[in-house]
Design a protein around this nucleic acid. Structure first.
Lengths: 221, 221
DNA sequence: GATACCAGTTTGGTATCCCAAAATGGTATC
DNA sequence: GATACCATTTTGGGATACCAAACTGGTATC
């Protein structure tokens, strides 16, 4: 694997895994030293991550994008548009077997599953469902949106009940998609996204002080 | 303006203006010499244009993305999702004065207006309408989709009647938005996008031989 | 004539060097 | 003690040197 892809992947992981906090300053030279690469691949990685919204320019320098509550609300609206369109498409041509694969993903999580895994599967559910639409643009839109949401979802204080409810909603959406009931799948998915957004924004707004204390920049809505 | 932004802008214009044909190979050294910049800004520009879908990797090298009819159809579906969502949002809060600005754009085109200007305004209509939604993600999605469509629309063989019909549809959409009639605006916009796609794909498919003769790579649906 | 092979060239990936602008930190002045 | 000012360092933007892999064109072999 090339250095460029390597730096990009590792840096993305550090940002998404909150090893580098939202709002932190980045210097090309620090990244260079941290990953043992020269500035050329470092700069390529930063340019890529910038388009993903994970880092941004701060005057002349680079900054890890802060968690932005207003942005999270806008992303939810965007997600609703693209995910609903995707699932409607899926309903017109999906085979039961492909739905089974996604359902199996959900099944793979149980009481012994680490929180990190639930987090990942919860995102992949939406991404893989969008992939089934067969539309590359809808798929990428959902994938990129979930990437942007990833850190915020990680910070969310989620109780067992909320996770269980999310999983139940996921299953209901799959059930509707399996029947090819586009309207029902769209309605359920839409409600799921809006509900998720509400819980997420509420949780982060409430915990904003705590997050800032941990050094994470959280911009209000 | 920095060299990086300069190279990026000029190279984008050359690609969108078909001065470099779809499917053509690009070498970093050629670009370097063509714009009098070194490879550092050239690479930054290529990385950016890659995320816009205007250039792509071809093995180790770079290629100007070909016109892809299947992709055009997928983009139309994507546009329908995001543009309809945007216009629905707009209908809930748009002021008549902001609609006026867009209507004035349409009015600025008359019989004496060069074809190039009609082309630009036809895209900007959709972009500015999406901007009115106030949702940055929907806006960027529309803007990026129009960028990807730009070259294909430029190649389309459009008659006067088709242009007039498009402008009439644009005005009808604005009228519905001005009244805040979200359902009607959504219906009209949706039909407009699908109609545009059909005309575009039909035109390009018919003229595919001619386009290839001009050295433009056109990938079938 | 087709094909396998090899030297020379081109090209993207990487490392490194230079520079101007911005940030930093210490000092003199009030 | 606060502030204005200057020397130093740091940093991103750009240019260039180097390399390994890929490509090219020609040649030898069958």
């Amino acid at each position: 694997m090339s250095q460029m892809q390597n730096v990009e992947r590792q840096l993305r992981e550090m940002i998404l895994g909150l090893e580098i906090g939202p709002g932190e300053k980045l210097t090309e030279r620090w990244i260079e030293g941290r990953f043992g690469a020269s500035r050329t691949p470092v700069r390529a990685a930063l340019l890529r991550l910038e388009t993903e919204g994970l880092v941004g320019r701060d005057g002349r320098g680079w900054t890890v994008s802060p968690i932005n509550l207003a942005e999270l609300e806008q992303i939810a609206v965007y997600r609703e548009a693209v995910e609903v369109a995707a699932v409607r498409l899926t309903c017109t041509h999906a085979e039961s077997s492909t739905i089974d694969v996604i359902e199996a993903m959900l099944d793979s999580c149980d009481d012994n599953t680490p929180r990190e895994e639930w987090h990942r599967v919860g995102m992949d559910f939406h991404i893989e469902l969008a992939r089934l639409s067969g539309n590359e643009f809808l798929f990428r839109a959902v994938r990129d949106a979930m990437t942007r949401l990833s850190r915020a979802r990680w910070l969310e204080v989620r109780d067992e009940a909320a996770l269980g409810r999310a999983w139940a909603e996921h299953r209901a959406i799959l059930a509707a998609a399996r029947l090819g009931d586009a309207d029902e799948a769209a309605r359920l998915l839409s409600a799921h996204i809006v509900g998720s957004r509400d819980r997420l924004v509420t949780s982060l707004a409430n915990d904003r002080r705590g997050l800032r204390a941990r050094g994470f920049a959280v911009v209000a809505a």
